[in-house]
Design a binder for these strands. Structure first.
Length: 672
DNA sequence: CTTCTCCCTGTTTTT
DNA sequence: CAGGGAGAAG
C-alpha cells in the first residue's frame, strides 16, 4: 500500500517580514525600485531611465543588504567618477548611519590601484609604482619615438596623441593593436610598423620602471585575477556584493573585471541606461549592457521607467530626441510631475548675445528665489563656455566649472609634481626628464644622457652633479642648476617628511624658475601652487597623494569669483560628460548648433548616434526648466561669420515639443 | 650638437 | 594656450 501523500506547500515568493527593517523600503521606493533593492543573491541588471531613481535604488539596496546582515565592508560599489562614488557613499551613510562609511567604493581605476598595491607582487609589480596620466603616456611615447629615430626626417609622422589613443583604445577593447589600427585608425596604417614598435617599447619601458598607465590599472588587475586563482577567490570572498553604476559605459576589460570579482558568488548588480552611453571614445560599448545576461546567465532584469526628476514637457523633448536614434531604445520616460513648462530653443544673434541671455535669465531665476546651486549651463566641449565665463565674471555671478582643463594638468603643477614623483619612484624617467629640462642649459638630449647614467641608483640625485658634467654641460649656470636640483631632491628624501612639507620645498626651489619662464602671468600660476599646497595638507603619505593626483584629481577649477559671498552658492558650468548622473532645477544647453554639437569631429554614423545620446543626457539633467540656445551668427576661423544652424538633434522637432524664441534688444520692439 | 625663442596652428568628451 | 616646427644663438 502506497504511503499517503502530503503536499508541501510552496512558500510565497517573499516571506521576508518587512517589519524587521528599520527603513520602510516599500514606502520609500516604487514597485520596480523595491524589487531591485530587495533582491538578495545572484546577478541583477537594472535598466534605469534618466531620472528614474537609479542612485536611490542603489543606495537603498546597499542599506537593505546591510540591514539583512551583510557586513558593510563586503559591499563594493564601483562607479566611473569619484564624485558619483563619494555622493553615493555619503547618502548611504546618511541613510543607515556610520556603518555605511565602511562600504568599499570608488572608481574602477582607484579600486584597481588599491588592489594592485597590495597584491601586485604576484604579477611582478612593485607596490611603489607610479601612475601615468594621459599626458605622461604621451611624453613617454614621444621620448621613445625620438630614441627610435622615427619622425625625424619624415614630416608626416603621426602625433604622439594619435599613437597614444590607438594604443589605449586597443587595450580597452581587448584587441591586438594591429587589428585596432586596421579597424579604426586607417589613417595611421602607413606607419603601422613603427607604431607597433613604439607600442612594444612602451610596454617594456613601463615594466622596467614601475609605471602603469590608466589602461594598465584595469588590464593588470584583470591579469592578476585571471592568473592567480588564490587572489581571485580572496577578492571575490572579500566583496560578496558587487554593485556597478553606469554599466552602459563599461568597456570589455571592466566587464571582465565584473565577472572575475563575482567568481565565487555571482552577486553582481549592474545599473545603467543604454540610451545614456556616451563614453565610446574610451572603449565603452553600450552593447555591454545588453550582453550582461550572457555574461551572467540567469540574471534577473528590472526596468525603471518612471521619471521623478523632470516635468513632462522636458521628457517629451528627451523622448523625441532619442526616438530618432537609429538603434531603438527600450524605454519611454513618463512622469506624474505636472507643470506648464516647455523647453525653449532660443536663437541668439551671436555668441555674445547668447551669453547675455544666459546670464540675464540666471539673474532672473535668482530673483525668483532659485538658488544658484540649482542652475547649470552645459555644453559639448569645455571651450564653448569661454565667452560665457567672461560674461558671468562681468556680472559677478559666481560659478564653478567642471570638466575640461583641470589645474592639475597645467604645466606648473606638473612641473612640481615631477620632483615629488622622482622621490617616490627614482626610476621614473619621465619625471626626471621634466625636472631636469627645467634647469636652464639642460635640454632633452643632455637630460636623457644624465638620466641614463643615474636612473638605476637608489638615490639618483647623489650622482646628478657628476653626470651633468659628463653629459657635456659646460656652462657654470647650468651646472649650478643641477647642483641645486640635487640638493633639493636630497632634502625631499629625508626620512619622515610630510608630503605638504616636501611640496613646500619643491615650490621654494621652483618659484624662481616659474617667474623666469612666465614673466607675464606667474602670479596666477603661483596661486595655483598655493592651492595645491593647501590640498597637500590632507595627505600623510607621498604615494597616496601622487596616486590621488593621477586618479582623482581635484576637478573644479576655481573661478576667480569664488570668494564672493559663498553662501549664495554658485552656478555650475559643465561639459555634458561631467554632468552625467547629476540634476539641476534649471539647465541651459549652449551652442546647440551644427558644427559644435555635434562637433566637427563626429562624422561616422556611430559617432553621430553617440552625440544624439549626449543631447539626451543633457536634456534629462533638467528638473523644471530647460533652455537650449545657439547663435545665428557664428564665427569660423577660416570663413569669418557664418550662419549658425540649430543642432540636427533639435532641428526637426515639432514646435509643440520645442518652441523657438528669438532674442530682441529692449528698445527694438516687444520682448521675445 | 643643443638649446632657446618665436610664430604658427588647431582645440571633444575622461579615468 | 600649448605643442610643434623652424631658425637663431650658445
Amino acid at each position: 500500500m502506497a504511503d499517503r501523500i502530503i503536499q508541501l506547500k510552496k512558500l510565497p515568493e517573499s516571506p521576508i517580514d518587512e517589519r524587521k527593517f528599520r527603513i520602510n523600503y516599500r514606502e520609500a521606493l516604487n514597485a520596480a525600485q523595491f524589487a531591485a533593492a530587495a533582491h538578495r543573491d545572484g546577478p541583477l541588471l537594472v535598466i534605469a531611465g534618466a531620472g528614474s531613481g537609479k542612485t536611490r535604488t542603489l543606495i537603498y539596496r546597499v542599506a537593505r543588504l546591510i540591514e539583512s546582515g551583510a557586513p558593510p565592508g563586503a559591499i563594493l560599489l564601483l562607479t566611473f567618477t569619484r564624485r558619483a562614488a563619494q555622493e553615493m557613499l555619503r547618502r548611504v551613510e546618511r541613510l543607515i548611519g556610520e556603518r555605511g562609511g565602511q562600504v568599499a567604493g570608488g572608481t574602477f581605476h582607484s579600486f584597481a590601484n588599491t588592489v594592485l598595491r597590495r597584491h601586485g607582487a604576484a604579477i611582478g609589480l612593485k607596490p611603489g609604482f607610479t601612475i601615468l596620466d594621459r599626458s605622461d603616456m604621451e611624453d613617454v611615447i614621444n621620448l621613445l619615438r625620438g630614441r627610435m629615430g622615427f619622425g625625424t626626417k619624415e614630416r608626416r609622422f603621426p602625433k604622439k596623441g594619435a599613437i597614444a589613443e590607438a594604443i589605449s583604445m586597443a587595450r580597452n577593447k581587448g584587441r591586438e593593436l594591429k587589428d585596432e589600427l586596421e579597424a579604426d585608425f586607417a589613417h595611421l596604417l602607413e606607419h603601422e610598423a613603427e607604431i607597433l614598435a613604439i607600442a612594444a617599447a612602451y610596454e617594456t619601458y613601463k615594466r622596467e620602471r614601475g609605471l602603469l598607465d590608466y589602461d594598465d590599472l584595469l588590464y593588470r588587475l584583470a591579469s592578476l585575477m585571471r592568473e592567480h586563482e588564490g587572489v581571485r577567490n580572496r577578492l571575490s570572498d572579500t566583496y560578496r556584493h558587487i554593485l556597478i553604476d553606469e554599466y552602459q559605459d563599461t568597456n570589455a576589460i571592466q566587464a571582465e573585471l565584473a565577472r572575475l570579482l563575482a567568481a565565487t558568488h555571482q552577486n553582481v548588480m549592474a545599473v545603467g541606461d543604454d540610451a545614456q552611453s556616451i563614453y565610446s571614445f574610451r572603449g565603452a560599448d553600450f552593447r555591454n549592457i545588453m550582453e550582461f545576461p550572457k555574461l551572467f546567465p540567469g540574471a534577473r532584469i528590472i526596468k525603471l521607467e518612471e521619471n521623478y526628476r523632470s516635468l513632462q514637457g522636458i521628457l517629451d523633448l528627451a523622448n523625441e530626441v532619442i526616438d530618432r536614434a537609429a538603434e531603438k531604445y527600450s524605454k519611454a520616460l513618463f512622469t506624474e510631475r505636472r507643470g506648464e513648462f516647455r523647453p525653449v530653443l532660443v536663437r541668439a544673434r551671436d555668441e555674445q548675445t547668447q551669453s547675455r541671455f544666459v546670464a540675464q535669465r540666471i539673474l532672473e531665476l535668482r530673483e525668483e528665489g532659485v538658488s544658484l546651486d540649482e542652475i547649470a549651463v552645459l555644453f559639448r566641449s569645455s571651450f564653448h563656455s569661454f565667452d560665457l565665463e567672461l560674461e558671468l565674471q562681468r556680472r559677478d555671478i559666481p560659478f564653478v566649472k567642471r570638466g575640461g582643463f583641470k589645474f592639475i594638468e597645467t604645466a606648473h603643477i606638473k612641473d612640481v609634481l615631477a620632483h615629488l614623483r622622482v622621490i617616490a619612484n627614482p626610476a621614473d624617467a619621465v619625471s626626471w626628464m621634466r625636472a631636469l629640462t627645467l634647469t636652464p642649459g639642460v635640454g632633452a638630449r643632455r637630460a636623457e644622457r644624465i638620466i641614463e647614467s643615474i636612473v638605476a641608483r637608489e638615490r639618483p640625485e647623489d650622482a646628478l652633479a657628476d653626470a651633468a658634467a659628463q653629459a657635456g654641460l659646460r656652462a657654470q649656470a647650468a651646472l649650478d642648476g643641477c647642483v641645486r636640483l640635487a640638493a633639493t631632491l636630497a632634502r625631499l628624501r629625508e626620512a619622515g617628511r610630510r608630503p605638504a612639507d616636501q611640496l613646500a620645498d619643491v615650490i621654494e626651489y621652483y618659484a624662481p624658475l616659474l617667474r623666469e619662464a612666465h614673466p607675464d602671468d606667474y602670479p596666477k600660476r603661483e596661486r595655483d601652487l598655493e592651492h595645491f599646497q593647501n590640498l597637500a595638507e590632507r595627505y600623510r603619505s607621498l604615494d597616496a597623494m601622487l596616486a590621488d593626483m593621477a586618479l582623482e584629481p581635484p576637478t573644479d577649477s576655481i573661478g576667480d569669483v569664488l570668494a564672493v559671498e559663498p553662501e549664495e552658492g554658485h552656478v555650475t558650468l559643465s561639459t555634458i560628460h561631467s554632468a552625467k548622473g547629476l540634476e539641476w532645477r534649471a539647465v541651459f544647453v549652449i551652442w546647440a548648433a551644427e558644427g559644435r554639437f555635434p562637433g566637427p569631429m563626429s562624422a561616422s554614423p556611430e559617432e553621430l548616434e553617440e552625440e544624439r545620446r549626449l543631447m539626451y543626457v543633457a536634456a534629462t539633467r533638467a528638473r523644471d526648466e530647460l533652455y537650449l540656445t545657439y547663435p545665428i551668427h557664428m564665427f569660423d576661423r577660416s570663413l569669418g561669420y557664418v550662419m549658425g544652424r540649430a543642432s540636427r538633434f533639435l532641428d526637426d522637432l515639432p514646435a509643440e515639443v520645442l518652441p523657438t524664441a528669438l532674442l530682441q534688444e529692449e528698445d527694438d520692439a516687444a520682448p521675445a
